[in-house]
Nucleic acid binder design. Structure first.
Lengths: 187, 187
DNA sequence: AACGAAACCTACCAGTCGACAGGTGACCGA
DNA sequence: TCGGTCACCTGTCGACTGGTAGGTTTCGTT
């Protein structure tokens, strides 16, 4: 069993390194050799754990899934603001998945289906959260279903502006501004 | 002079082809050979017009600059909505620059400075537009300067959701929803 | 002590990449 | 008609890509 643990630890190390390299170069630009070197392996040593480059990407995306797999019903608007604040302290992770999202809109990208399904899921989750928070009508008159895409868009869009120019963009502050836009909370 | 015209037409053809290939593969994935083939040239023939790959990218970005170089003062919120509607009819262009934006957040990307400066410029332009439309305070209490990043973020974020799943995301509609969020227009 | 699997290696491979060198033909102004 | 510039070509290069084949070492289990 020690062997199994050691193997899984190695896999985790590799995924961590892959996150870094993807942040720096994107997925297409991330070579297996570069990832391998970062964990002190040869490219072929890495391919013992992940038989193809796509297999490694799948592991990276699963890592993301594990990250935001918080029970939907527990989400609240103020927790979302806290998440944005947390993200602002991890530029690396944000950069990885912003780069990946950008690439995914190109044809036949291996991460396309992942992101497509993820957004469908996240929008539904956000709508549910908004409904439990505000009811069927937000203070501004919109429905939760029509607000959810905007909420998601603001989060993503702010990330790009912030990554490109962290000094000029106060990502958490701007997000709180948007929440205020949604309507005063019924505290 | 006929020669000069012919040369510039060729260059324009190449840039157009590059826009397509970048939309399909991203900048890193767009090979000069693929672009060249699309205009019926060899890779070396293309490099007669653009000595390096980066030179081609510069031309592509200048094309974009020319696109949205509309006099700031003439922008109005409703024109912005019309722009989004127009974009919804050109998935290709949207895909090109969404892919480019995504890549640009990676380290040392040749388009990084372009996007960084562009967003600074666009935010200022949007703030100016909002001020001329609403005054120093929006109906919801925010200032134009704090609203501008949100406006830009919504436009970009919606594009990604729309590109990934055009059937589920009504980009122009969602954008109009956001405008309504900003406050009823003082018609 | 023997065995098997897991971990990792060296050695290759064919293909692709951007770029450089140098040539050829067409057109154009003098 | 001549000289030159422009538009393109063929040929070639070294670096790198992901992937395959086939070893060797390490180590826990029996």
């Amino acid at each position: 069993m020690n062997a199994r643990v050691r193997g899984e630890e190695r896999r985790a190390e590799i995924v961590r390194a892959a996150l870094e390299v993807i942040a720096e170069r994107g997925y297409r630009g991330a070579s297996l050799a570069a990832v391998a070197e970062r964990v002190g392996l040869t490219q072929q040593g890495l391919m013992h754990h992940f038989p193809t480059k796509d297999a490694l990407l799948v592991a990276v995306l699963q890592e993301r899934d594990r990250w935001d797999a918080v029970p939907d019903s527990r989400w609240r608007v103020d927790l979302l603001a806290a998440l944005v604040e947390y993200n602002a302290m991890r530029p690396g992770i944000v950069q990885t998945f912003s780069a990946l999202l950008g690439e995914s809109v190109t044809d036949d990208h291996p991460a396309r289906a992942f992101f497509s399904e993820r957004y469908t899921r996240v929008r539904a989750s956000m709508a549910e959260m908004l409904r439990s928070e505000y009811g069927d009508r937000l203070p501004n008159g919109l429905t939760p279903e029509r607000t959810a895409p905007l909420l998601v868009a603001v989060m993503d869009g702010l990330q790009y502006q912030w990554l490109l120019d962290p000094a000029s963009v106060d990502m958490p502050g701007a997000f709180r501004d948007f929440l205020r836009l949604l309507g005063e909370r019924p505290d």
